[in-house]
Amino acid sequence: MNICVVTQQYKNIFSGVGLHANNLTNALLNDGHKVTLVLPEDQAPQLISPQLSITTVKKPRFNQNQARWISLSFSFNTALQRLESQSRFDLVHFTDARESFFCTPHASMIGHVNDTYSAELKTPLEYKRNYPDWLLRWLYYSAVHYLESRKLHRLKLLVANSQYTANTIIKTYPKTAPKVRLCYKSVDIERYHEIDNRRKVSPPDLDHPIILFVGSNMYRKGVPDLIKAAPGVIKQHPQARFIIIGEDKSTDRLKRLCYDLNVDRNFEFAGWQSQESLLSYYQRASVFVMPSLTEAFGVTFLEAMAAGVPVIGTNVGGIPEIIHDGTNGLLVPVESPSSITDAINQLLSDAQLRERFIQSAFSTLNNFSVDKMMECTRSLYQEILEN
């Protein structure tokens, strides 16, 4: 097949979107398909293959803003029109369905729904309780909600990253119901085997434990609650270090919260890290924690599991489809710093529990392998082509 993959991320991975774009493209090339990547100019890969073509567009106008997909969608449309004047695609695959909203290719479109925060639109007061940028966030989510209600059903198929996402999209936008399919995101398990082996040879130092968080949009992913949980952890583990990986415009505000709670010496805000650098952080981590307020899926839990790091998440959104409380990790109530404290201390003090979770997590990962993801993707492609 001749497949066009349209994505905002590839070379530099900031979220599950970039991770999926890499796994998808590599698997399609391995299957022998011809692939055209359409992406921003700063995301062009070094990957060389006779079956791969690359078309770049200008970086989005709001590159560090959630709304960057809007300008990208217009740029992607121009690129697709130019490409389709030269050749025919069997389908166009968007790693983020929103980026198709202002595109009108001749080929059928398939797109991923990666989050639910716009579909689950709340009142301004609810955002004000948790977000310093509550008004802008509410206005942005409201605009996206409006566009999703009018644009999502235009795609041939919509790929939800969790059953929770699928149910939410169908409930909020009933027109999408016939087109929504569940296809879990994947993690390249083989890539993490060496990290797990190194952890076995040289286990993390529990006298100086590292609690790791990886993600952007840090208020939504519960970093303030993690900071509030820190004093209770440090009381039992004075040498504990909390490492926060990711870029976020609210970092300075979060650092001030650390200072106010007198835990700033125990926190390191390490910024964005490449996938290669991230492996070294997983290797040294004692526990991985992401206490999200809302989360459609949570691919970083899969990364931590693959690296052999026990995980803690909140009992919200699609997270329980990955973490089974007490079996392969711990789930805590949303917005409950004290529960986060208890969960971290429990894992740091119980070696048998950590090992049981790690071994169980390896079994869980079989459901989220690249092979499983591609098996699902091939069936969706076949459905589109047959119809």
Results as ranks from 00 to 15, higher is better:
1 M>G: 10
2 N>D: 13
10 Y>T: 00
12 N>P: 01
14 F>R: 12
15 S>E: 02
18 G>S: 02
27 A>Y: 02
27 A>Q: 09
30 N>M: 06
30 N>K: 14
36 T>I: 09
37 L>Y: 07
38 V>N: 01
41 E>C: 11
46 Q>M: 09
50 P>I: 04
52 L>W: 06
59 K>Y: 02
65 N>E: 14
71 S>T: 15
73 S>K: 12
77 N>D: 15
80 L>G: 01
83 L>D: 09
88 R>E: 15
93 H>S: 14
100 S>V: 03
108 S>M: 03
113 V>N: 04
113 V>P: 02
114 N>V: 07
117 Y>N: 11
117 Y>H: 13
124 P>A: 02
125 L>T: 13
131 Y>G: 01
131 Y>S: 03
132 P>C: 03
133 D>K: 12
137 R>S: 12
141 Y>C: 13
142 S>K: 14
143 A>N: 08
152 L>A: 04
154 R>T: 03
155 L>M: 15
159 V>F: 05
160 A>H: 11
161 N>V: 15
163 Q>C: 12
165 T>S: 14
175 K>F: 05
176 T>A: 10
177 A>P: 00
178 P>A: 07
183 C>K: 11
188 D>E: 15
191 R>D: 11
194 E>M: 05
195 I>G: 04
196 D>T: 12
201 V>E: 14
208 H>R: 15
210 I>N: 05
214 V>Q: 00
221 K>N: 14
226 L>Q: 03
228 K>G: 01
235 K>A: 13
238 P>G: 06
239 Q>D: 11
251 T>C: 05
268 E>W: 04
276 E>F: 01
281 Y>H: 07
283 Q>W: 02
285 A>D: 07
296 A>V: 11
296 A>K: 03
300 T>Y: 03
305 M>G: 10
306 A>M: 04
315 N>V: 11
321 E>C: 07
328 N>D: 15
330 L>Y: 03
331 L>R: 09
331 L>A: 08
341 T>K: 01
344 I>M: 07
350 D>C: 05
354 R>K: 10
364 T>Y: 02
372 K>M: 11
377 T>I: 10
378 R>Q: 15
381 Y>L: 08
382 Q>V: 04
386 E>Q: 14
